[in-house]
Design a protein around this nucleic acid. Structure first.
Lengths: 341, 341
DNA sequence: CTGAAAGCGCTTACAG
DNA sequence: CTGAAAGCGCTTACAG
């Protein structure tokens, strides 16, 4: 159809050289305000889209953003898939490439693994996903290198350290517990993540705040430490039942562990949600496929990742950005019901 | 670290011009066998990887493969995610780009939607995912344009028409039913897809063959038509219970509908898998998270997609390729057990 | 069959 | 602040 416009077309229409067009497109400050204006309007008029391939070839810079993510099982989990798809979408719009960098969170060489591509000049900026975004040491190391940095889904402790996006986990926990309190629940259990998983801990804090405002003390919601997966949720639920304590609602720190808890509950012969309320966090793609379909809190992970890239390009252009927080959204499905008694 | 090698380095080492190197890399037949050999060994010695950006820029050809996929809910389902990730992996290896093309299967303009980018010269080849790979008309239209074509997961009817990869669905159905027969089941129900979903129908055929070999007739496994999603599986299970017929095993044509059936079974107060066996197909990422974890048949979708791209590059090089079939693999989890009686 | 040369669309020293 | 020019790594007519 319509032939693709090049930088040359824009230059002609704007009455400047191609170099000048390139400069304004790359936010180079050495351009007069007037020329910048002319180029911008010309580009807009021609619906000009820079050819990403050519930029990569010509530029000294890699024009790529590095997404650092913990190594996980193969094939990649839904979480990473959503992260990537959101980031990819935003990268496409900005003419950037996405380089996925998987690193083992527990490796002794994790810092080196993250720093190496940066020192090697392979990227223009990095977005650090959890749990790396919770580590002040690697954040500091990255900042010493003056590489634009975005924190994704970090815990409160590191949010002041760099630009980023994350959910308000405390509010999420508060919202979930408030909902369950409204349903009439008074005896809870909370299935936590590993202790270095800060957002799980914040969800717990938020839930406790809700209970405390309702006049309940901490003993109304014991927390069980462990991990954020199916097996752990399964195990945690069995431990609760074995303890003799009988909550009417079990809040799990993510949807995978909630799935495990649901399975354990079925094994105990419980009829859900009549005999027990079980909830998750994240609104994973499978949440609506569980039995019963899971009541949870939506994270909009792909949107967050896209936002992270948007913020990163601002940071690359040296515009200041605060840490952004997105509001949790309760997704009511069938796994939460009023307590039986 | 080690500086990236270019075509120039290879040319010098092989003692030929860059043009010749480029020709052998692009499988241009106008190169002497001797020079081809020298270039290949030189490239190998230097661990040369062509710069994809430069190829795209220089070549007249788009160097991209188009993956045609039915439009689905946002965000993309796990199925498409796996397809894409497999295709992406293979494209990366071949220095190709992947262009995802979503088209509405029910649109009157579906053919135009698929043909347009092809006529526009936007891709070097196309891989057609189901259900498009089941449509002889669009296959023919594509072939008339002499664009390299791969069929992905097509039904038997179209497998002779072009190169491709797919699972042996009939064998998959056979394997699942055989397993359940071995467990002792004799009364089944089969939850089908829509009638134009051929692979679901073939799974049904395979299952019937297993029953027939076991001396059971067709009435031992009534089939329920519908769709391949949670709601339909849910609905189908309720219909079975309402009918008065009491199978001991319900085979669902995919994992989503199995999830729905499981939920319906729980609502009927059944204890799974003791009171009822329910199985799926695909081994979707969520299959192990259901309660009980789902016994199913693995499709290895990402591997198939990667294979599709590999075959496509052969076809582009005009080497003949048959339709390849991958063997189904039974994944035994907890949702299938011997019948109670 | 093979090489010299032009060119893909952009960026970036280099002068001014 | 701005333009002319070289160059990124590769491909492809064009001659031979």
């Amino acid at each position: 159809m319509s032939v693709r416009k090049t930088i040359y077309d824009v230059a002609v229409l704007a009455g400047v050289s191609e170099a000048t067009v390139s400069r304004v497109l790359n936010n180079n400050p050495r351009v007069s305000a007037e020329n910048r204006e002319r180029v911008l309007t010309a580009a807009r008029a021609l619906r000009f889209k820079p050819n990403a391939q050519a930029r990569l070839l010509a530029g000294g810079r890699p024009h790529t953003v590095m997404l650092v993510h913990p190594t996980s099982s193969k094939p990649p989990t839904w979480y990473f898939q959503l992260l990537e798809s959101g980031a990819l979408r935003a990268c496409g719009q900005h003419g950037l490439r996405l380089q996925n960098h998987f690193v083992f969170p527990d490796s002794v060489r994790r810092d080196a693994a993250i720093l190496h591509p940066v020192d090697n000049g392979e990227c223009d900026g990095v977005v650090l996903a959890a749990p790396f975004s919770d580590d002040p040491l690697i954040i500091r190391a990255l900042q010493l290198r003056h590489i634009p940095l975005i924190l994704l889904a970090s815990g409160h402790a590191t949010r002041g350290l760099a630009a980023g996006v994350g959910m308000d986990d405390e509010a999420a926990g508060y919202e979930m517990a408030s909902y369950l309190l409204k349903l009439g629940h008074r005896r809870f259990a909370f299935v936590l993540g590993l202790k270095d998983h800060l957002s799980a801990a914040e969800r717990f804090d938020g839930a406790r705040r809700a209970l405390s405002e309702a006049g309940l003390d901490a003993s109304a919601m014991p927390g069980l430490e462990g991990g954020l997966n199916f097996d752990y949720g399964f195990d945690a639920f069995h431990r609760i039942m074995a303890s003799g304590y009988r909550p009417t609602a079990v809040i799990c720190a993510n949807d995978e562990s909630a799935a495990g808890a649901i399975h354990a509950a079925h094994q105990h012969g419980l009829c859900l949600p009549r005999d027990m309320t079980i909830t998750g966090f994240d609104d994973a793609p499978f949440a609506r496929l569980l039995s019963p379909p899971l009541t949870t809190i939506s994270q909009a992970i792909d949107t967050m990742a896209a936002r992270a890239v948007d913020i990163l390009v601002d940071v690359i252009k040296t515009v200041d950005r605060p840490y952004e927080t997105v509001k949790p959204r309760l997704v009511v499905r069938a796994s939460a019901a009023p307590p039986r008694d």
